[in-house]
Design a protein around this nucleic acid. Structure first.
Lengths: 218, 218
DNA sequence: CCTACCGATCGGTAGG
DNA sequence: CCTACCGATCGGTAGG
């Protein structure tokens, strides 16, 4: 049994707001409840894996009953997709912002530093969670869902290439930029497996170490 | 229905060998059937994930009936553990071999090359499969199982440190060896996500590119 | 969102 | 290894 939730209205009107009925649950409450559901789901997907997480686990984490998540998402699969899709959209938007905030003519090494630091924020920062799920649950998506996330993901990754190519031309990056990009993303993405906020390194320090590993001293 | 398996003996003796009964199924057939089961399971675990793979999927891949895998492994979880454990034992043994085969006084860069090349063989080579499962299904193990695999895994990873420390002393590795090791394993392990034997790079070429990315030109 | 429920599936087992 | 089976669980839904 689940503890009864406090009624927000003291009278005996029904729970649903009056007026014309909503077409979907997307924007009830500005979508805040929906997002809360995604955050709990993402945390569980990361710890236990998507397939091993039940919709009942998610409902319980929300203090809901077992059928209620389906009021917000039409299926468990749609919930996973929403987590990845919105996670990737946010990551791409943030990356766009930091790149545009760079002074014109910023050198490639500094540009890569900013990209790495921002990537760590997305992966390991206080409001992270969606992208790590994407990295480790890719196989749980249907083919159509993968296409939907790939388009954003490809654009995100492509934005790293100019900096890598410039470093290669300057002789500061010894590997081919295309392969270097794959290795670098691997190294950074893997931090999800071992990074701890209680560990010896801050995200700034990790950024510095990564830069030293991949790019020759100028 | 499942196609009947060809009888290996032409007479009408029972399938089970005569003589004293076995305590376990481990060494019937020299364990060949058991290993076959592990290989099919590993392939399915990698494609679909452990939790999404049913013991019926595995049985079907073997041409067995649904209850039969439990003749060889007492549970689905024990099967996963066997895959990871034996995979890690094999990897550690192979790594030990190639290190011992090195001529005394081999320089650190060459030593790292050999370690990377061997790691690729384990991850991506023709007889691979067990270690990739370990990398992506760690969370599906119980705490006790994790300890059992960790002991071998830690020894495997520790063998990379002397080469990294020597490179750092020589000024060819700019990052701290402990962090460099984590990044390098991340970069290499991530290849499981994108490497294809039909792609443009051979394992030798990938080894060379990795070395150039991590280690400064001598 | 809750209530009450269903059909399907899953890991595992007893006995041979 | 197969046969025949069970208890538990799971994603999802109709109706309010």
């Amino acid at each position: 049994m689940v503890a009864a939730r406090t009624r927000t209205s003291a009278d005996d009107t029904p729970h649903r707001p009056r007026g014309r009925p909503r077409k979907s649950a997307d924007d009830v409450d500005g979508g805040a409840r929906r997002r809360e559901l995604m955050e709990h789901a993402a945390r569980l997907f990361l710890v236990k894996g998507y397939a091993a997480t039940t919709t009942r686990d998610i409902a319980a984490a929300m203090g809901m009953h077992s059928g209620s998540p389906f009021y917000y998402f039409k299926s468990k699969s749609a919930l996973l997709y929403a987590v990845m899709r919105e996670g990737m959209e946010l990551a791409a938007a943030r990356q766009q912002q930091v790149l545009q905030a760079l002074a014109p003519g910023t050198d490639a090494r500094e540009c890569l530093r900013v990209l790495i630091r921002q990537h760590f924020e997305i992966l390991l920062g206080p409001h992270s969670g969606f992208i790590p799920v994407m990295l480790y649950e890719w196989r749980s998506l249907t083919a159509a869902q993968r296409r939907g996330v790939s388009s954003i993901k490809d654009a995100y990754e492509a934005q790293w290439m100019p900096a890598l190519q410039a470093l290669a031309r300057a002789g500061l990056l010894q590997a081919e930029p295309a392969v270097a990009r794959l290795y670098i993303f691997g190294a950074l993405n893997w931090t999800v497996q071992w990074f701890s906020r209680k560990g010896p390194y801050s995200l700034d320090e990790l950024t510095e170490q990564a830069l030293r590993l991949f790019v020759c001293a100028p």
